[in-house]
């Protein structure tokens, strides 16, 4: 790791102010993405702003517009939450499959969305469930949040404080794990939302998550798994690597979309 200075934020305002004062600062949530990046010298922040003591960002509560989850809530807390399991069981299952138990003890919702990993499970959930990402200064729809590989709509000094997941009529998740890393080679979340209709989100297949509008239209006529059978995914632009060709991933998208819809019931 390159050397960096370290400050511990005592409030959201404090964290944002520290980022504004020192150019090249970076927020540190659970560190499950940032620390491995720093170790590989893929980032060189002047200062890490530790959010670990912002206890006010660790909560899960139900409100009229859905389940609100604080940005610093760990994956283990979400996966184990009775409230989440009851309201959006597919979300609880999805989060329970992130990383491994030790990663879930440290990794956070805010960190997972802010890093926008192309195979990030939470990214699929935010997109498919039409989540709203709340920051220290505004509310951002998931559709406007993920901008490309590792890129988001967040400004450098902008901090996610909570995420609102509207409760869907139904939702399902299907993930094909890369056999060594257990990351999603491809995964699909399908949800029938109350406000935005059917939404299907894909991760792992390309450099950034994306939705399947044609399938969503078909599902709006009737919710059935076979709707995915006629899905034609163009491999052009999909990821091709050691673990699978673009054509293979295109095929997986259809298979997993079918399974996700079936999983939703």
């Amino acid at each position: 790791m390159y050397p960096f200075d370290y400050v511990r934020a005592s409030s959201v305002e404090d964290a944002v102010s520290a980022a504004q004062t020192t150019a090249g600062s970076r927020f540190l949530a659970g560190g499950m993405t940032v620390l491995p990046m720093l170790k590989q010298r893929l980032a060189n922040p002047t200062q890490l702003i530790d959010l670990g003591h912002l206890a006010g960002l660790r909560f899960i509560r139900a409100d009229i517009d859905g389940i609100h989850i604080g940005a610093m809530t760990t994956h283990a807390a979400v996966a184990g939450s009775g409230l989440v399991r009851e309201a959006i069981p597919a979300l609880a299952r999805l989060v329970d499959g992130i990383g491994d138990p030790q990663v879930r003890h440290r990794g956070t919702l805010g960190g997972a969305l802010a890093t926008n990993d192309s195979a990030g499970d939470y990214v699929a959930a935010a997109l498919a469930l039409a989540a709203t990402i709340v920051t220290d200064r505004r509310r951002i729809a998931a559709d406007d949040f993920f901008r490309g590989m590792g890129e988001t709509a967040l400004a450098a000094d902008e901090l996610i404080t909570e995420v609102v997941f509207p409760i869907p009529r139904r939702a399902g998740y299907a993930k094909f794990e890369q056999l060594a890393s257990r990351y999603a080679l491809v995964a699909v979340m399908a949800a029938e939302t109350t406000v935005a209709g059917p939404r299907v989100a894909v991760i792992g297949a390309a450099s950034c998550a994306f939705r399947l509008p044609a399938l969503e239209t078909a599902l709006s006529r009737r919710w059935h798994a076979a709707a995915a059978d006629s899905l034609a995914i163009d491999p052009d632009g999909l990821t091709s690597d050691l673990c699978g060709s673009a054509a293979y991933r295109a095929d997986l998208v259809g298979v997993l979309a079918r399974r996700a819809i079936a999983d939703a019931g």
């Binding site: 540190l28 499950m32 138990p101 990663v103 440290r106």
Partner: peptide, 19 residues
């Protein structure tokens, strides 16, 4: 490298001592 921090198992290679 798994150790327990406040009663939970974590990977101590992916956590800073300051954390």
């Amino acid at each position: 490298c798994v150790v327990h921090v406040d009663g939970l198992s974590v990977k101590s290679c992916s956590m800073l001592a300051v954390q």
